[in-house]
Amino acid sequence: MSILQILDIGLAGLVLAVAAWTVFARDAFAAVVGFVAYGLLLSLVWVRLFAVDVALTEAAIGSGVTGVLLIGAAGRLRKLEASGGDDELPGASLRLFAAALCIFVTLVLAGVVLSLPDPGPTLAPEAARHLAETGLGNPITAVLLSYRSFDTMLEKVVLVLAVVGVWSLAADQYWGGAAGNPRGAEPDGTRALLAQVLPPLGILIGIHMVWVGADEPGGAFQGGAILAAMWMITMMAGLTEMPSIRSRLLRLVLVAGPAVFVAVGVAGVAFASGVFAYPTGFAKPLILFIEAFMTLSIAVTLPVLVAGPPKRLRQQ
């Protein structure tokens, strides 16, 4: 057994242990913290699966932004929970039954997964064959923005719908207001310093990620998530604040990604072989063009989702 294998097994054990913690921890807040750690460990697993793009996404969105969202929520809920509630666990026999069911599901799944052919059927050769047409080096970016760009565009629409859904939970009187704390409400020295130093660096990294994403691991999701994180940091430090949900600019940025995507896709009917096809030779620049807007949209959408529905009328 090589060292790498031992490390793998150790990592697996750790991931499962932390996952179990998030399920069994008494306190919801502790469970959420565990979940963030779990996400980071999981990205290591992804690295071991040679899926660096996924690892970056998992770290940035699966663990990072989701973590901020959950920790924020758990914190607020902890404040409210003092007033009591009926949070008792279901009865022991039911839990036992559920446990047996879940173990059985696990075993069935594991059995099936192990029975999958290895090497398995793959689209890698297909993807490689068409890679030249796209002019990209990173096959995952090619899948996301060319072969299966339809999925990606729709997934951007999912984000837009999530924003609409979250906003719809505002109280009526705050419609048109903004989420989060007003600027300068919580002056905090260290945070402010961090918020001044990090963002320029982060923005650079984010943009770089999108740019290299064409050929190397990275891309709009990961880059967008980093940009989003930077914005969130400056907001937490009170340096910037959430714009009003009625801000035309905010909305423009929110829909820019999917809108440009759709526009370029539909233009394919006139300028290429069909919808969501790129004209020969123009694939890469067009993809980068779309990615730029997508990054922008993601960078704004994620913080908007984390911030939640508007809770105050913004001072003009």
């Binding site: 899926a51 793009d53 793959t122 689209l123 890698a124 490689a128 996301l144 999925d151 999701f221």
Partner: peptide
């Protein structure tokens, strides 16, 4: 990972799906 082929360490299609 099981679909590693054509010089890629892993099949890019499922990876893209995971990102989505």
């Amino acid at each position: 990972r099981k679909g590693a082929a054509a010089g890629f360490a892993a099949d890019p299609v499922p990876q893209a799906m995971v990102i989505t």
